[in-house]
């Protein structure tokens, strides 16, 4: 056995303040000052996104770079749009419903999306589903999802007995109803039609339709632009409804407006790539701790950037490191589920 040689007591060591980090005191101070500047923290995320995007586009190109850029550029754009929509909408949804463990999916977006697809396949057949003009299909999906969620939200949150618990319960019940209904219809489908539907059931970011991608990007950009002037109001909404009203926010109108933006973003991106909501929970909660403030002008962009990093990083790791062709959403669902459990358990313990 070797014993650690004990160094003689050094007076100089005692006088210098102990630093827990491996950095020199000056570097540590510089680091902490830098870290305190929230804008820079967001900028750092931006840099990570750019680096990841560069890696994704430019490395491991099997043939023509131009061709790879064209194909990968589309996927990258889809990821940017969808991640932004999911990150932003989850943070806003958290604030307006005063909770941090639910995502807008509680309003039954994904279940409803699957139901719509199934009904179309069931009634019109798989071939016409595939031959369906994607633009029309997308339009129907978005319109129906937005209409449905806004009605549900108005009913349960705009009325007299607004209650997050009631909304949660109704959301779960309706989600189950839609899923069972979907399943029931799927049982009666022929195997080919069923296969077509199964593909629609998982989010797929690769090879998005160009027109739809552009349309979704426009919708998400519009919603984000409309959100910017509302960021300070969102801060006030953090205090809860009575306090927000006391501070002069027209609560019901503002919340309805915000929720409409959320549902447009979520519906558009779900209709583009499929159900992909769960990871909003991870990125939103990561954003709250990373941003270090409740201010929405920091948490909202942080959540969007973290969502991009999650999707892009996940795709990179899956594709390049593990050489998987499996869809990223399976991994996301799994990780999201684990994270949700941790959140619930930790909240319960406190």
């Amino acid at each position: 056995m070797l014993t650690e040689p004990t160094s003689p007591p050094d007076v100089a060591v005692v006088t210098t303040p102990p630093t827990t980090s491996p950095l020199t005191p000056r570097a540590a101070r510089w680091w902490s000052r830098w870290w305190d500047r929230r804008g820079l923290r967001i900028a750092l995320l931006g840099v990570v996104v750019v680096v990841l995007a560069g890696l994704y586009l430019l490395t491991d190109v099997p043939g023509s770079l131009a061709y790879a850029l064209k194909i990968r550029g589309l996927t990258l754009a889809a990821m940017l749009v969808v991640a932004t929509a999911v990150g932003v909408s989850t943070v806003v949804f958290h604030t307006i419903t005063q909770n941090r463990i639910l995502t807008p999916s509680i309003m039954g977006f994904d279940a409803f999306y699957l139901l719509i697809s199934t009904v179309i396949v069931f009634t019109a057949g798989a071939t016409s589903f595939l031959r369906f003009d994607p633009l029309v299909l997308w339009g129907i999906q978005v319109a129906v999802m937005v209409a449905f969620s806004v009605v549900l939200f108005t009913w349960l949150f705009g009325g007299k007995r607004r209650s997050i618990h009631l909304m949660l319960l109704v959301g779960i019940v309706l989600g189950t109803l839609f899923r069972s209904f979907t399943e029931w219809m799927q049982r009666m489908l022929d195997p080919v039609a069923f296969q077509v539907l199964s593909d629609a059931g998982f989010a797929s970011l690769t090879r998005p339709d160009r027109t739809l991608l552009a349309l979704t990007a426009v919708l998400v950009a519009l919603a984000c632009a409309a959100l910017i002037p509302l960021l300070p109001t969102l801060d006030v909404l953090t205090l809860g409804e009575p306090a927000a009203i006391g501070l002069g926010v027209s609560h019901r109108r503002t919340v309805m407006l915000l929720f409409t933006m959320v549902s447009v973003m979520v519906a558009a991106s779900t209709a583009l790539v499929g159900p992909i909501l769960f990871f909003g929970l991870i990125v939103a909660n990561l954003a709250y701790s990373y941003a270090g403030t409740f201010r929405h002008r920091f948490t909202v962009p942080t959540a969007a950037l973290l969502a991009v990093i999650c999707l892009l990083g996940g795709q990179l790791v899956l594709e390049r490191v593990f050489a998987f062709t499996a869809t990223l959403s399976t991994v996301i669902e799994f990780a999201g589920g684990m994270f949700f459990l941790t959140l619930v358990l930790r909240k319960g313990a406190r």
Binding site: H94, T95, Q98, N99, R100, T238, L239, G240, P242, A243, I245, G246, L247, G248, V249, S250, Y288, F294
Partner: peptide
Amino acid sequence: SAQLAKTLAVLRQDNHIVA
């Protein structure tokens, strides 16, 4: 409401904040 908020401030009993 915004105008009234400059004349009247209310502090409620229950001030639970999620964030």
